[in-house]
Design a protein around this nucleic acid. Structure first.
Length: 393
DNA sequence: ATGTCC
C-alpha cells in the first residue's frame, strides 16, 4: 500500500503511485490549501487536477472553521446509479437517441406534484431554481447508460440488487444555479475567507449548503426518472453519493470539517468511479477500518475519501486545439468502446473527449494498491448524454 | 461549475 501513498508534507498526502502523472500546479494548489488557517490535513486523490485556485480531486480537513470556497459552487454534486428495466441486448440505441431529444428542457407540469412531494419529504424549501430540477447542466456533468461488462464480486452485485442483464443509468450532476447562489452569497460577504464556527453566518451557510446538497440529490433523482420515462423504462436507485460538500467529522480524535472537492466518500458503502465517456467506469467497495490488516495511519491519509473520476489530463479550452486536426465533430459522437455520445455543444464535445482524461484503470489501480478499495464490477458505456445547450456550430 | 462571458 505504501507505494501508492505519498507524504508530500506532514499535513499533505497524495494517494497516487509514482507513475501516475499529476500536474504540478495541482500539487502546488494542494500544498497552498493546506496552509489555510485551521487546516489540519489535506489529501489529493489520484484524479487530482488544478482548479480555480484550489485543486479538484481532493479533500480538506479543517478544525474550528469551514471554507465554502473549497467546496465551490456545485454544492452536492455527485453520482447516482440506477438499475433500469432495459435488457442490454434489447435496446436500439439510435432509437433511444431520438427519444432523448427533450430531456434538457425544464420538466413539464406533469412532474409538478412529484417534485412538490419529494421536496417536502426531503425538507427542501427553496424554489427559485425549481425550473432547473431534472436538468444535467454543463461541464463534466452527464447521464450515461452502461452495461455490466465484468463482475468481480457477484455476492456484492446481488446485495446491491443489480441485474447484470439490464442496463444501468449513471447520473452525474449537482445543484445547478442554487449551489452557485449559495457560494456567491458567501463570497460577497467574506471573499474566500473561511467562516469560524462561532459566527452566525456559519450556521446560515451550513443550512443553505445542506439544502443545496438535498436539492442536488433530488436533481439527480429527477434526471434519472425523466430519462427512464423518455426511453419508456422503469428503474430503481442503487446508490447516490455526493463528492462536493463539507461535512462534520471526527478524524483521529479531532472534531472538524471535511471538505470534499471532487472526492468520493469512502465511508458510505459502494460507489461508482466513472471513467470518461469513452472509458469504463468501476463499481467499487471502499475498504473500511473493520477490514483485517487495515493500517489506521492510512485511513487518516485518505481522509475517508476516494477519487471521483478519471481526472483531467488536459485543461478545458485546450482540447479543441489539440484534437480538431485529428477528429471532426462527428468523429467524437462515437467512442473507441463503441458507445454513442449525444452532445450538441461543440466546446463540450472536445473538452470532455476521452483523450482529455486519464485512463480510469490507472486511478483504480492506485486506489487498490493503496488498500482503499475492492473492485466489484467494471461498467461499459453504451450511451452518454451531455448537454446540447449553448453553441452548436 | 454557472440560463456564464463574448
Amino acid at each position: 500500500m505504501g507505494n501508492s501513498v505519498q507524504n508530500i508534507t506532514d499535513c499533505v498526502s497524495l494517494i497516487a503511485s509514482e507513475k501516475t502523472w499529476i500536474e504540478g500546479l495541482a500539487i502546488e494548489q494542494l500544498i497552498k490549501t493546506s496552509e489555510l488557517k485551521g487546516m489540519v490535513q489535506v489529501a489529493g486523490m489520484p484524479d487530482l487536477h488544478p482548479g480555480r485556485g484550489y485543486p479538484v480531486g481532493a479533500v480538506f480537513f479543517s478544525s474550528g472553521k469551514i471554507y465554502p470556497a473549497l467546496v465551490g459552487n456545485d454544492i452536492g454534486c455527485g453520482m447516482s446509479l440506477w438499475q433500469t428495466s432495459a435488457k442490454v441486448g434489447n435496446v436500439n440505441i439510435e432509437r433511444w437517441v431520438k427519444k432523448l431529444e427533450d430531456v434538457e428542457q425544464s420538466l413539464d407540469d406533469s412532474w409538478l406534484d412529484e417534485i412538490a412531494l419529494r421536496k417536502t419529504e426531503k425538507g427542501i424549501l427553496r424554489s427559485e431554481y425549481d425550473y432547473a430540477l431534472g436538468t444535467i447542466g454543463g461541464g463534466n456533468h452527464f447521464a450515461e447508460f452502461q452495461a455490466v461488462e465484468t463482475i468481480y464480486d457477484a455476492d456484492e452485485i446481488d446485495r446491491l440488487g443489480i441485474d447484470k442483464k439490464r442496463l444501468l443509468l449513471l447520473v452525474h450532476s449537482g445543484s445547478r444555479g442554487l449551489g452557485q447562489s449559495v457560494l456567491t452569497h458567501h463570497i460577497a460577504q467574506f471573499n474566500h475567507d473561511g467562516l469560524p464556527e462561532d459566527v452566525p453566518e456559519f450556521q446560515h451557510y451550513v443550512a443553505a449548503h445542506d439544502e443545496a446538497v438535498k436539492w442536488a440529490e433530488l436533481n439527480r433523482e429527477m434526471i434519472a426518472k425523466r430519462f427512464l420515462q423518455a426511453v419508456r423504462e422503469s428503474g430503481e436507485c442503487v446508490l447516490d453519493i455526493n463528492h462536493n460538500l463539507v461535512v462534520e467529522k471526527s478524524i483521529n480524535n479531532i472534531k472538524g470539517w471535511l471538505h470534499r472537492k471532487g472526492a468520493t466518500p469512502a465511508d458510505q458503502g459502494c460507489v461508482v468511479i466513472p471513467g470518461s465517456r469513452g472509458d469504463f467506469s468501476y463499481l467499487v467497495a471502499p475498504l473500511n477500518t473493520l477490514d483485517a490488516g487495515y493500517d489506521k495511519s492510512n485511513l487518516y491519509q485518505n481522509l475517508h475519501s476516494l477519487a471521483h473520476g478519471a481526472g483531467r489530463k488536459w485543461k478545458r479550452g485546450d482540447c479543441q486545439a489539440r484534437l480538431s486536426h485529428k477528429y471532426k465533430k462527428d468523429d467524437l459522437l462515437r467512442t473507441a468502446l463503441g458507445s454513442r455520445v449525444i452532445c450538441g455543444n461543440k466546446e463540450l464535445l472536445y473538452d470532455e473527449a476521452p483523450q482529455a482524461y486519464k485512463k480510469c484503470e490507472s486511478i483504480i489501480e492506485d486506489l487498490v494498491s493503496a488498500g482503499l478499495i475492492r473492485v466489484i464490477a467494471r461498467l461499459r458505456p453504451v450511451l452518454t448524454f451531455k448537454t446540447n445547450g449553448g453553441c452548436s456550430s
